[in-house]
Amino acid sequence: MDSTRTLPLPADWRDFFALTKPRVMTLVIFTGLCGLLAAPGEIHPVLAFTAILCIAVGAGGAAALNQWWEADIDAGMKRTANRPLPAGRMDRTSARDFGFALAGGSVFVMGLANGWLPAAILALSIFYYAWIYTVWLKPRTPQNIVIGGGAGAFPPLIGWVAVTGHITLMPVLLFLIIFMWTPPHFWALALFVQTDYAKVGIPMMPVVAGEKATRRQILIYAALLLPLAATPWFIGATGPIYGVAALVLGALFLLLSARVGLRTSVPGDGMAPEKRLFAFSIIYLFALFAVLVADRYATLQGWQ
């Protein structure tokens, strides 16, 4: 029975599922779906479902490749130490192969079902996250998540292009909104898990430039996000429902960012404003994209 003694236990399918970062995927699916629903034009429900499925599976593949590459770093942080690879529940090769299979499969299926332009953007977004962000930027520059935020900004663009078949200003604006939203969202988190990033040597903004500079930049990005998010209304691409909602949500986001941006933390203060900003930033993005879809349907119904 010696051979069975050395045989490693195959990884549980739940660990493969965990590798796709299902919680992050929720936001990816949602923004992708909103891009698809807000786009002018029609798409067959089966093809719409396929587009969203491919965006989700592609994001899952990119997340798996990210965890394959960062297994050693993840092992050093409390927040990520229990992921399948650092916890030793899966071997690295399986994670790598799984990631490549999901990434390749999703691009291929999207190309066949929705066209090769959205498929090419999906491939670019996976490459952007798995290589440009994970391998290249994250360990090198404190601006990592600013540029890397582009990876998370692709889903609404892909959803939109899956319907229209071409890139116009509006999907690019949706891309830019998420791009601008990412730094305050992520740095709010980085402020209260700061010690973890410092321990594994990732140059997150609070670690390298200090808390004060990070707080100031959170405020700057939130201030830029407010007019940017309302731009679709200013250029006439959406109606007042979206415009007013974008301004109100943006003002709240700016207010919470100001509370973070203008204060100095003291040891043991619980970092409540940072945690509140992080939580609100998620609600902000969900609400903004939901209103975008609602606005389009209100326009189609002739309500505005």
Binding site: M1, T4, R5, L7, L9, P10, A11, D12, W13
Partner: peptide, 17 residues
């Protein structure tokens, strides 16, 4: 370590996958 239980676990994991 118990070879019988271990093999059972191995098979169960394989079946689920």
């Amino acid at each position: 370590f118990d070879p019988a239980t271990d093999l059972q676990l191995f098979r169960a994991r394989q079946k689920a996958r």
